[in-house]
């Protein structure tokens, strides 16, 4: 029972963070929300008893991908513009 509640909470957090990525106009905040999404997926892998995959996902999804996004934002603009 408690396991089901944790599953539902994590998946609800996944949906909320995915909507946040879409919603933010500040691209740095969107990149961090995407990192939160990866971290919650890694938590879900850990609950499903796959710690190897969880470590890979936390290191690559939440670490390296966010670093690449931050490098890209540093070289371009930080705020999203309106589509004409």
């Amino acid at each position: 029972m408690i396991e089901t509640i944790i599953h539902v909470l994590v998946i609800a957090g996944l949906v909320v963070s995915a909507i946040l990525v879409f919603h933010f106009r500040d691209l740095l905040a969107a990149a961090l929300a995407s990192a939160l999404f990866s971290f919650l997926i890694s938590l879900e892998f850990y609950i499903l008893q796959a710690p190897d995959v969880a470590i890979s996902q936390a290191a690559i999804g939440a670490g390296l991908t966010t670093a690449i996004f931050i490098l890209a934002i540093r070289s371009t603009k930080r705020y999203e513009e309106d589509i004409p």
Partner: peptide, 21 residues
């Protein structure tokens, strides 16, 4: 323990990426 070469190497590369950023 869980993990291995690929996972540990990715974690170390994350530390290097932190410094690079």
């Amino acid at each position: 323990t869980p993990g291995g070469g690929f996972q540990g190497g990715a974690v170390v590369a994350t530390g290097a990426a932190l410094v690079i950023v």
